[in-house]
Design a protein around this nucleic acid. Structure first.
Length: 464
RNA sequence: GGCCCGGUGGCAGAGUGGUGAUGCAGAGGACUGCAAAUCCUUUAAUGCCGGUUCGAUUCCGGCCCGGGCCUCCA
């Protein structure tokens, strides 16, 4: 089975063939750390984590480098730090930490490298210098450095637009400094109280796009296999990255496969603070397990627009309840060592390899979990279980034991209390005092603790 | 205005040129002291109009509706 990916550059599904089979390289645009990430930021985080896992699984002989950058210099950051009356580094360090916690809660693996823009200023300055030397950039009277779009004949081919169309666009703001209205900033001067670095063009800071060209060059070289991000980055961000990198390295195609995830809506509408549907990941994590958010994000194909909702997340919890029930069945009669790792196979593999069709892959997990729960043969379960767990892990699901899931967010004291109440109820049931037994169950239900009477006694789990 | 994406049952959401997955919800049943979970059965959908075809949800054209981008954006 082979991996097919939709390439924004060619607008086709293509067979994925690495440039260098021994070293597969992927770069994904990470967050600008001016605030907590919201659920829309979480989608690429999860999608490209699945792709990273899939590449590792299907290319075991290859090195795989996954770079996910952090943008920690930006006008929004400057503005927010001013508003909060705190230093820029306090703001960015705090948000980076919170971002990394969120990524962990969403069951994302750590990328190979997570470079920060401010650690690569000298590389950016060098890149800009070369672009000026080659005639692709120029310095204005105000000390800005701008990229000259006219110097690049095929500018606009990723986003499928040409310069004339853009200039006709109603929102083009023509700066007197620009030779061409479509030119974009590589370097801009900083005032004394703005963050800045010394350069031949004076003290200033980089434009938004140049960091990704500099950092991908630093860690992946002049060209690499996959570059990902949200669809709203296609233009101008990724278009401009191509311009910078390909003018820096003429005749080397920058990126082979461009992958973009669709936009996230929230509760049927565009996310906005005034509508009350603006969800940050940290707020959602107070209400839902990260794994449920992850599943909710994977339940729609990555290129489709996704309508995130709390109801959808509750559905994801029900689905995970079943997966973890299957896992519990396996844990009860299966030594984990029996689960050996193998290459992906079956419908799960073919779905995932077909341009990351995670919704179709999830239906395979649904069927596999049912089969495990219903199969009375221990040997059959062991066989089914191996594929099931491996498949789930490939999606970054079922990373915890079943006890962790069913008893999540429960303190030890609470657990003891629940166990005592279950014991009291058991005594009441033995005495046929069902009114008391039901009262205890209702009391626990109010605390979203669901009891299940089974042949081996009563177990509990957390409801939603 | 330009460019791009989508419209599938009550909701979510795949696939496919030949009787439309899966999950949630609903109905009936099994199990249970009652539940829960699970299982069985079951109701229910391809925006509109043309074209190509033996046959279109799928391909093509037009229309309607929704969404995105057009230098803040994942």
């Amino acid at each position: 089975m082979t991996l097919q990916l939709y390439n924004t550059l060619t607008r086709k599904k293509e067979l994925f063939v690495p440039i260098n089979n021994e070293h597969i390289r992927m770069y994904v645009c990470g967050p600008t750390v001016y605030d907590d990430i919201h659920i829309g930021n979480a989608r690429p985080l999860v999608i490209f984590d699945v792709l990273f896992r899939l590449l590792k699984n299907t290319n075991r002989e290859s090195d795989i480098t996954y770079v996910r950058n952090i943008t920690d210099v930006d006008d929004k950051i400057i503005q927010r730090a001013e508003e909060n009356n705190e230093s820029i580094s306090d703001l960015t360090n705090r948000n980076i930490l919170r971002f990394q916690e969120a990524a962990l809660e969403l069951c994302c693996l750590k990328p190979t490298i997570e470079p920060r823009a401010t650690d690569h200023i000298s590389q950016m300055i060098n890149l800009i210098k070369v672009l000026i030397e080659k005639g692709h950039a120029y310095v204005t009277d105000d000390g800005e450095v701008l990229f000259s779009v006219l110097s690049m004949p095929n500018y606009g081919r990723l986003s499928g637009r040409n310069r004339d169309e853009m200039i006709l666009g109603a929102r083009i703001e023509v700066s007197s400094n620009k030779r061409d209205p479509a030119d974009f900033i590589l370097w801009k001067p900083s005032t004394p109280n703005q963050p800045g670095w010394d350069s031949v063009w004076g003290r200033g800071r980089p434009g938004w796009h140049v960091e990704c060209s500099a950092m991908s060059e630093e860690y992946l070289g002049p060209n690499f296999d996959i570059h990902g991000g949200g669809v709203d980055l296609v233009f101008p961000h990724h278009e401009n990255e191509i311009a910078q990198s390909e003018c820096f390295h003429p005749n080397i195609p920058f990126v082979k496969t461009w992958i973009h995830n669709g936009y996230v809506m929230s509760e049927g509408e565009k996310m906005s603070k005034s509508l009350g549907n603006f969800y940050t990941v940290s707020d959602l994590l107070k209400e839902f397990p990260g794994e449920a958010l992850r599943l909710a994000l994977l339940a729609t194909h990555y290129r489709q627009p996704l309508d995130f909702s709390k109801d959808g997340t509750k559905e994801a919890i029900s689905r995970l309840d079943k997966y973890y029930l299957a896992l519990k069945v396996l844990e009860d009669d299966l030594d984990q060592k029996e689960l050996i790792s193998s290459n992906i196979a079956d419908d799960f593999g073919s779905s995932l390899l077909d341009d990351l069709n995670t919704p179709a892959a999830l239906t395979v997990l649904d069927k596999q979990s049912s089969a495990i729960i219903n199969d009375s043969s221990r040997d059959n379960r062991a066989q089914l279980g191996q594929a099931f767990i491996q498949n789930a892990n490939l999606l970054g699901l079922l990373c915890n034991g079943s006890a962790y899931w069913h008893k999540r967010n429960t303190t030890e004291a609470e657990q003891t209390n629940i166990d005592q109440m279950i014991k009291k109820r058991m005594i009441a049931r033995e005495q046929r005092d069902f009114a008391e037994a039901d009262r205890i169950r209702d009391e626990l239900l109010l605390r979203k603790i669901i009891l299940e009477d089974g042949p081996d006694g009563t177990i509990w789990r957390r409801g939603s």
